[in-house]
Amino acid sequence: MSNIFAHRGSSGKYPENTMLAFKKAEKTGCYGIELDVQMSKDRECFVIHDETVNRTTNGRGYIKDKTLKEIKKFSIKSGWLKKERIPLLDEVLEWAQHNSLIINIELKNDKIRYEGMEELVVQKVAKFNLEERVIFSTFNLQSVRKLKELTNSEVAALYSKKGTNPLLLAQSTGADAIHANQRVMTEKLMKDCQQNGVPVRLYTLNKPVAIEKWIQAGLNGVITDYPELAEQLKKKRAVKA
Rank of each mutant, 00 (worst) to 15 (best):
I4Y: 01
H7G: 10
R8W: 04
S11I: 03
L20D: 06
A21S: 15
F22A: 04
K24C: 03
K24D: 02
K24H: 04
A25N: 02
A25K: 03
E26F: 13
I33F: 10
D36P: 10
M39S: 01
D42W: 09
H49D: 14
H49W: 14
E51K: 15
T52S: 15
N54V: 00
R55H: 14
G59I: 06
G61A: 00
G61W: 01
Y62W: 15
I63A: 08
K64S: 13
D65F: 00
L68A: 04
F74C: 02
I76Y: 13
K77W: 10
G79D: 12
W80V: 13
W80I: 14
K82W: 10
V92Q: 01
W95L: 05
A96C: 13
A96L: 11
L101G: 10
I105H: 09
D110R: 14
K111H: 10
I112Y: 15
G116F: 09
M117S: 00
L120S: 10
V121K: 00
A126M: 04
K127M: 12
N129F: 06
E131H: 07
E132I: 01
R133D: 06
V134C: 09
F139M: 09
V144Y: 03
K146F: 04
K146L: 15
E149M: 12
N152L: 11
E154R: 14
A156P: 10
A157D: 00
K161S: 14
T164Y: 07
N165T: 07
P166S: 09
P166M: 09
L168I: 08
Q171R: 15
G174K: 12
G174L: 11
A177S: 14
A177N: 07
N181W: 08
E187F: 08
C193E: 08
Q195F: 10
V198P: 13
P199K: 11
P199V: 02
P199G: 07
P208H: 06
V209N: 10
A210W: 06
K213A: 03
A217Y: 07
V222K: 05
P227C: 03
P227Q: 05
P227Y: 08
K236R: 08
K236T: 11
A238N: 04
V239E: 11
